[in-house]
Design a protein around this nucleic acid. Structure first.
Lengths: 197, 197
DNA sequence: TCCTCATGTGACCACCCGGTCATATCTTAC
DNA sequence: GTAAGATATGACCGGGTGGTCACATGAGGA
């Protein structure tokens, strides 16, 4: 958590710091991102940064949190959608894609976070994964009870597959990814490879 | 490519260098791995390393190549298997898992490689992806022609999904992953989420 | 024995990093 | 006006990095 001093700052200065940090953390993972470059880029003294944050990790987690909050506000309405699980998933990834288009830097920050290898970040990583799993698990369970989804499948394996594909999709948003391809990928997940009788 | 000097070395010395490099590159991605630690760990002078390799990247790509060659020799026999595409995929991931168990360090090296963000490595990355895609694409095409696989699916999307899930599976091998779970995941891919009529 | 040439070496270079701290400046209250 | 407290600063620290180079050591041939 940032120190109180940070929140006492004039808003435009706070913004400048956040923007510079977002720019840097969007470019590379935590370990390779440079605090020095951030302070140079927003024109404050290195020492000042330590008036606002405990250390580099503190700043990083604050920025990642911001990115995820923004993304959540974009994407969560998919789960409120009327319609079956396929409609929901479709909308979920469509909104994720839209978010990546509208906020490419925030998208990259959130995206880069998953590649973190630092042990200190692993607990945070797991927390994020679980919170995402919760929404998904609920929609999935309802769909299985209603018979929309094949109820012989292992819910954990289903989540695993969708998580993997979602991650890869989101990873490739920056390379451009049209609605049609997204649709095709979701179709593969929906129908599976096996030919229908 | 290593310089000739490297291949003139006594085999045990060459091994020591390779082993030390594998150990380091298994721990973290290219940018964070330390040449200094590698030379310390195998007890040669820093300068010597530059008699054998052009630079850090040269050493790295050589090691990654070794890891992939080893893995390929483990895994490729899956594609020669008699049986439908599902048998092949099953065996492919089973062998991948076996490889990760038998050569955890090589597995980590190959695995870590995919997370590289360095622009200089991107061409290499793409090359690896394509070569993997080729084997897969062939098996898939045959399966579609034979009617084993739903031929209304987009082959590119299918590859995308299987690549994503494979990556994630392989990522999670080190956390333990039993045959049963593997089977469940492949079932999700095979049958899809949608309930069968 | 001596010259040559390939190989080995580690001190050294320039550069970058996260983090600190004595000091300067600004704000507020009396 | 001045004392007190909060905030800003950037030179500096110890430590790490990839890469270099003048020199030492080795082997082979004349």
């Amino acid at each position: 958590m940032p120190k109180q001093t940070f929140f006492n700052l004039e808003p435009e200065k706070r913004r400048a710091i956040i923007d510079a940090a977002v720019r840097e953390f969007a470019r590379q993972p935590f370990e390779q991102a440079s605090l020095t470059k951030i302070v140079e880029s927003c024109g404050i003294a290195k020492g000042s940064m330590y008036q606002y944050f405990e250390d580099k990790k503190d700043l990083y987690l604050y920025i990642v949190d911001l990115a995820y909050e923004q993304k959540k506000s974009y994407v969560s309405r998919a789960f409120a959608l009327a319609g079956d699980i396929f409609t929901v998933l479709n909308e979920y990834y469509r909104l994720s894609y839209q978010f990546a288009l509208d906020h490419p830097l925030l998208h990259q920050v959130a995206n880069m976070f998953w590649d973190s290898r630092a042990e200190e970040l692993c607990t945070e990583l797991e927390k994020g994964r679980l919170s995402r799993a919760k929404d998904f698990a609920q929609v999935l369970q309802e769909a299985m009870e209603q018979g929309t989804v094949n109820d012989r499948l292992d819910p954990e394996a289903v989540f695993f597959v969708y998580h993997a594909v979602g991650k890869e999709l989101i990873d490739h948003f920056h390379q451009g990814c049209n609605d049609h391809f997204l649709q095709q990928v979701l179709d593969v997940l929906k129908y599976g490879l096996a030919a229908r009788d």
